[in-house]
Amino acid sequence: MGESSVRAGGGIHTWLCLPLQDTAAVAQGATISPTKVDAIMPATRTFEIVKDAAGDKIAFYNSWAENYDQVDAIMAATRTLEIVKDLFVSVHKDASVGDKIAFYNSWAENYDQDAVILDFSAPIQAVNRLTSNFTGDREAAVVLDVACGTGMVAKQMKTHGFGHFVGIDGSEGMMELARKTGLYQDLRQCIMGVEPLPVQWGSFDVVVITGALSLGHVPVPVVRELCKAAKPGGYICMTTRLDDENAEYKAALESELKRMEDEGLWRRVEVTEVKEWEKAVNEHEEGYITGFVYLYKTI
């Protein structure tokens, strides 16, 4: 097999691999239909093929219909670290609450795979620290998953024996994917920092929030609501990152956590520093940034 260009419906489609006899036929001016090409090598469809196909108008779409559903898969396979970096930079930019919600709604379908590309470790790091210290009945424990997103934390906690989850998020698109996991007994929409958490205080054995305590997202004072949501003796697990952009927020967060401890609202169980938290996304940073897991227990 070799690389060739295929004439189809008047357009030229590059980077398809065809059997030698078809390559020779094309070289002599023959036309090979997109349907035949797809039947010969369905697995070789690439992002370049999809882009080229878009220029061939109605006739080509008629012949392309059976492969149209592959577009999302092809687009997903070609997502790169640079694309994901741009997305993460965009979501941390100063924008209205409505704009950010719309952004997360549109990002929901690709969020999990983009987190993998970024090596985003907050959910697994938080769950590891929580489960290492939790002493209660995991099967009976009720978990409040704040900023639950697509359900990453619940998926991790399920593998450690937890099974009762209530999720809160500002994005309906994210919550729809969380709903599809089948792990949540309830999902509630809330813009944290704008609206109070829609829960009864003192109801949860565990309250967890990962990836959302950062500049431009959940304001620092919301941690007081997290504490109120937990039962006496309940655990609150939180994360934040340390990069140039988030350094001031992190300092304010830690000051508030210490203030609440001084007020007798909770006690610190542990604070864990993780060097390879996620890949750096800012232009002036390279490699990985550091993150922190904060674990507290209410009094």
Rank of each mutant, 00 (worst) to 15 (best):
F47Q: 13
P196I: 04
V222H: 02
E283C: 01
V166H: 07
P196A: 08
L16Y: 13
Y249P: 03
R259I: 04
E273S: 10
M192N: 06
T159K: 14
S33V: 02
A115N: 04
T290F: 05
S4F: 05
K279N: 12
M152W: 01
V223A: 00
S171T: 10
K57G: 09
A102R: 09
I40K: 12
S121R: 11
N282G: 01
P198V: 04
V281P: 03
V223F: 05
M260L: 15
R179G: 00
A77I: 05
V84A: 09
Q189N: 09
F60K: 03
Q113D: 10
M41C: 15
P19L: 05
L213R: 03
L81K: 10
M192K: 00
L295N: 07
E261M: 14
F292I: 08
E82K: 15
E270G: 02
F292R: 15
M41K: 14
Q200G: 00
I117R: 13
G291F: 04
A54H: 06
G170H: 06
G216M: 03
Q70D: 14
D205Y: 04
D244R: 03
S4P: 01
H92Q: 10
H164C: 06
L295W: 11
R241M: 15
D262M: 12
V37I: 15
A39N: 13
V218D: 01
T46E: 08
C17W: 12
E261L: 03
P232M: 09
W201V: 03
V207N: 02
K297P: 00
G173Y: 08
V6R: 05
Q21H: 14
H217T: 00
I209D: 10
D145G: 03
P198G: 06
C190N: 11
K158H: 13
A230Q: 09
V143Q: 02
G2N: 11
W201L: 02
A24P: 00
S96D: 10
G182F: 05
D114L: 07
T290I: 14
C237F: 00
A252I: 00
V293F: 06
D69C: 11
V84L: 02
I83M: 12
G216T: 04
I124R: 14
I83G: 05
Q21I: 12
V84E: 09
E176R: 12
D22R: 13
R129A: 13
A251R: 12
R79S: 08
L118H: 10
P198Q: 06
M157C: 10
R45C: 07
G211L: 06
R138L: 02
Y296I: 13
S106C: 04
E172D: 13
K57E: 09
F47E: 12
D262N: 14
A27E: 11
W15V: 09
R267Q: 13
E276H: 13
D52M: 04
L81E: 15
T46V: 08
K275S: 12
K258W: 09
A115T: 09
S63L: 07
N110C: 06
L253E: 07
T181G: 06
F134Y: 15
T150Y: 07
A108L: 08
Y249N: 02
L130D: 04
S106V: 00
F162A: 05
T23F: 01
K158R: 15
R138Q: 12
D243L: 09
K158F: 03
V127F: 06
G163D: 05
V293E: 05
G136D: 09
K228I: 01
I58T: 11
I117L: 15
K51D: 11
A230Y: 07
Y249H: 09
F60D: 02
K297F: 02
